[in-house]
Amino acid sequence: MPETRIERVALATPPRIARRVRGLSDRAIAWLFVAPTIFLLLAVNIFPLIWTIRLSFTDFRANRPNAEASWVGLRNYERILTDGDVWMTMQATAHFLFWTLFLQVLLGFALAWLINAKFRGSNFWTTIIVLPMMLSPAVVGNFWTLLYQPQIGLFNNIVGYVTGADPTGFSMIGDVNLAPWSIVIVDTWMWTPFVMLICLAGLRSIPESIYEAAECDRASPWRQFWTITVPMVLPFLMLAVLFRGIENFKMFDLVVQLTGGGPGSVTTLTSIDLKREAFEKWRTGYSSAYAIILFVTVFGLASIYVKALNKVKER
């Protein structure tokens, strides 16, 4: 009678398969199991990446597959890095990234702090607060276009009511100075709940005993906040920043729906610009180089960030 599960599995294995497997080493069996995953990874991630790198050195156009592509060396990279318009989109992306992350962390943490206080109806308010992140970005973009409408939009009318300004006197998505803020506001409205949920998980993971010990040591609430709460929630916050940072670097749908990249190009983020180059102008070689530059940027920044995150966790 077999005693262990391994023995039972060995006995249950059909002799034909058992004979075949018996000749394989543990390492070979391990490779056998991971091979499909590796194959899939190579086919879906690595091969396209290598192919994109190759295309980035050519003038290939995907809408003319039969035309011969010429090798252009580093010309695509040179054109991108010296193009003032590309740097404008980089600036627009940096503005969007910085302010959305800053506001979402600030508001998300504040909301989590409030919700964690466990007041009456806190569960109900949590549900209400997380509703925006459940909506489709295209829907959010569409209805914020209406909210920003100078004549009938709720946003303009509220601003007008509070400040006394004429609601029709400014256009959030039509004014070159306000449009970059209009997309920051909408993204913050939509994704602050996500940061709040992660912060809430962090706050609830702090053992109550630490606060009790701090109180015994007569630590003030302010000191408890800075020496217990913030350090212990920091890894969670940094994780939220990583997720939102990567997502917002790729931001496309919400902004396209809201401003179409305008007015002019002030809200044309790199992903929008890349899409236009790749699938509207069909400059596949050029856009491959553009994609590689963005990939290296995100990968580099994310690697540095993850190292910092690990250090914070180790502390």
Partner: peptide
């Protein structure tokens, strides 16, 4: 001069 507010797109 002559368009409605918010008609930028």
């Amino acid at each position: 001069c002559c368009t409605a507010p918010g008609s930028s797109d």
